[in-house]
Design a protein around this nucleic acid. Structure first.
Lengths: 240, 240
DNA sequence: CGCACGATTGACCGAAGTCAACAATCGTGG
DNA sequence: CCACGATTGTTGACTTCGGTCAATCGTGCG
């Protein structure tokens, strides 16, 4: 981890679909008051992590919340039996590290090299108290997270792994950062083991399932990290 | 559904573990300002539902949020393939029906005969605007929901159903309303099919798994709705 | 009393986890 | 620039867990 000395970039929060349209800019980010931006700049810092570096560990004191500025992050929960369940992936603008009274509920690590905006919880809490607008935004942010989590639940409870993978790929294809909707090509930012841990299955099964999808022409593996998708036929898989 | 004419009882929100201790009363509920209580009473109503009655349906306009006053509620999501995934059960004091911009994300139905406090969303939103304390409470409430949802995710992703059931029973045993911690007896408020839909498995497997747990002495079925539990041995199951 | 519903048990089979081998890719250093 | 090892991805063989279909049991209710 390295604290960057450069001036803090504007805090951007992914907003599309969560906030009213008049609060969203052309890039799909939440529009924050200049005053709020300045106040956030006063308490936040910009930090960088190398790929695979740990950001925080579950059950340790939770000082900060983070918002990716560039790169991607993986948040997971370790269980007593050694399982490592990935709870969510976070892209630029999606805040993580919330929840949990004073301790982190999960662990976070860098999926790629990344720059994060880091905000101390107590200072943010303070700020919320005299900026009701920001408080409101936090609430909507928490709701958005809740929605993601419930969506994830629906994905991992598909009985057949084929559906889980199809649903997962479709979910990814809604992220413009990783999906080229002109060529229908999805750029996977995570490896097979991350996908397995996210879907509650094994690497072998993920690999085999992609094989089967490719056999049937719903997917083409350009290379291990880039997939061409037939979105409509993948959607059809979910109806059987 | 029936709107009850009786005066609205005090709004009680389950708070234990989520709010700071000085905001919690002796019963584990959130302490709300008298002014806030009065304002809530102005917009809320008390409604009753019969067992199995639908409360709201997913994808329909979301007018209200609900807080059970007595009884219990089941919230589920219907998928295109006909699956009915239960997302959560709600006990008295646990608000549901939040999230989703204007439409319900899930369907809710009464698990038992129940009385619910029903609050119009727009009026609540209004009220939050000039009651920052309440706004803050809503945020904490959303965080609590998020936590529940992530806990649920960890439960249903146990590879072996044995672990899912064990974890589920333990989770239930933390609810004082249904667990007699003196006798170690859990009163299940839902039937086998609800458990199956919550755990992402089938009724038969739930039944068989309870059978196996009973064989090994971790559980005793007093009747189909009442189980004696050996909590420590159930916990041990999760470590293998 | 008989019907309906929920719960349980049995038999069968397929999907997926596990172990193992192998291929491909990447990064490092000679 | 190539060679090597390390990491990641794919494929195969085997086994088991759990889903499905079906029959049976028990309880409550009309």
């Amino acid at each position: 981890m390295k604290i960057l000395a450069t001036p803090l970039p504007k805090v951007r929060i992914c907003a599309i679909g969560h906030w009213p349209v008049d609060r969203i800019d052309h890039g799909g980010f939440l529009i924050l008051d200049d005053v709020v931006q300045k106040e956030l700049a006063g308490i936040a810092s910009l930090v960088s992590y190398d790929c695979k570096e740990k950001i925080f560990v579950q059950d340790t004191p939770a000082q900060y919340i983070y918002i990716p500025h560039s790169g991607a992050v993986r948040v997971a929960h370790q269980l007593a039996d050694g399982r490592n369940q990935i709870v969510a992936f976070f892209m630029p603008g999606e805040p993580f590290g919330l929840g949990g009274n004073g301790v982190y509920l999960n662990s976070a690590s860098a999926l790629t090299d990344c720059c994060l905006i880091r905000i101390p919880r107590d200072a943010l809490h303070e700020l919320c108290n005299h900026e009701p607008r920001l408080q409101q935004d936090c609430l909507v942010g928490a709701m958005a997270q809740l929605r993601l989590s419930q969506r994830h639940l629906l994905i991992v409870t598909h009985q057949r792994v084929l559906k889980r993978v199809a649903d997962f790929l479709l979910e990814c294809s809604h992220q413009p950062e990783v999906f080229d909707s002109g060529r229908n090509v999805l750029n996977l930012i995570m490896d097979r083991s991350d996908i397995a841990d996210y879907l509650g299955t094994s690497v072998e099964t993920v690999s085999r399932t992609l094989g089967k999808l490719e056999e049937d022409g719903l997917v083409k593996r350009l290379d291990s990290r880039n997939l061409w998708l037939d979105q409509s036929r993948l959607t059809a898989v979910l109806n059987n």
